[in-house]
């Protein structure tokens, strides 16, 4: 289908200008557009009929990857830039795993990490990875004041986040890791690189003997949207990380999660995907934590 009538197209050059445009629009009539690879679909299907589009493409401060002090990724940074970056530490390998397999090349050339997080589609990769890696989301308001929101509070439910309508997501940040840390993400979809039927993200910190100091496991593709799997994280801490301990943790995750059955996969199959993908992902995260593993 084609979009319903759009009265106004605005391309602001700063966040404050963008928010002012949102405030000037009638309630519910305007929408911020980042890469537009999901939102344009919704607009064409007329699920959304905004009369005003506020295009964020010129917000240069929201673009780029800075790995000098921890890791900071601007909200308007595109998948292709994350996928191809050579300065992302192994601790955040899951981000690159996810970015490399979103949709297709054309979509990765335009889609942004911030757009994906703010849209928070029920089956998407970035929200789950940002949750699993414990991102801090920096929001800016009309006065230029910023607030930091932990990913766990930012992602509320599918298509719902803690971002106020007069706020813009500026960046995602992670502090420098203190221990040997690695992370990985993998998904299974109906065709290669499709939306996740199930995806698993695991971040691990290990000591020199391979014992897990801290762990964070998150899941994508489930009916409640991106979510942490605390049962799995708790099961891993204190254990030597190997196939057996990861499988035990993923069993706990599969048991604890609310797992839907649908045309793509029934409940038992999804639970099996959580276990199988989880073991692959956990072993890759371990290898990266120990300075090995392909990137």
């Amino acid at each position: 289908m084609l979009p319903a009538k759009i009265e106004q197209y605005i391309r602001p050059s700063s966040p404050s200008e963008a928010i002012a445009a949102m405030q000037a629009a009638e309630e519910g009539e305007a929408i911020f557009l980042a890469g537009g690879q999901s939102v344009m679909q919704a607009i064409k299907a007329r699920m959304m009929q905004p009369s005003c589009i506020i295009d964020l493409q010129d917000l240069a401060d929201l673009k780029g990857i800075d790995a000098n002090d921890g890791l900071t990724i601007g909200a308007m940074t595109r998948y292709v830039e994350i996928a191809e970056a050579d300065n992302v530490p192994a601790a955040f390998g899951a981000l690159q795993d996810a970015a490399q397999h979103v949709g297709d090349r054309q979509v990765r050339n335009r889609g942004t990490i911030g757009g994906s997080c703010c849209w928070n589609y029920v089956a998407s990769c970035m929200p789950a990875v940002c949750l699993g890696l414990g991102a801090t989301m920096k929001l800016i308001d009309a006065q230029g004041a910023t607030r930091d929101v932990p990913a766990e509070e930012f992602f509320i439910a599918p298509l719902e986040t803690a971002r106020d309508e007069f706020e813009i997501l500026m960046s995602l940040h992670w502090p420098t890791v203190e221990h040997d840390t690695g992370s990985a993400y993998k998904k299974w979809g109906l065709v290669k690189d499709a939306l996740p039927v199930v995806g698993v993200c695991i971040s691990l910190a290990v000591d020199s003997l391979g014992t897990c100091i801290s762990a964070s496991v998150s899941l994508s593709g489930l009916e409640d949207g991106a979510q942490l799997a605390p049962a799995a994280s708790e099961a891993l801490v204190g254990q030597v990380v190997d196939e057996k301990s990861i499988l035990a943790a993923m069993n706990a995750a599969a048991d604890a999660a609310s797992v839907q059955g649908d045309a793509a996969a029934d409940t038992e199959y999804r639970k099996q995907l959580i276990r199988t993908l989880g073991v692959d992902v956990g072993l890759l995260a371990l290898a990266r934590a120990q300075g090995q593993g392909e990137r």
Binding site: M1, L2, P3, I6, Y9, L33, G36, Q37, M40, Q41, K44, I53, D55, Q57, V80, D104, R105, Q106, V107, N109, R110
Partner: peptide
């Protein structure tokens, strides 16, 4: 694909990068 963004037949280069031209407004 009736503008669903799935077939890629509308792929063009935007500033030398391949993008689907049905997933963008002309004003963009």
């Amino acid at each position: 694909c009736t503008y669903e963004g799935v077939c890629g037949a509308c792929t063009v280069h935007l500033d030398n990068e391949a993008v689907k031209s049905c997933l963008m407004l002309a004003v963009q």
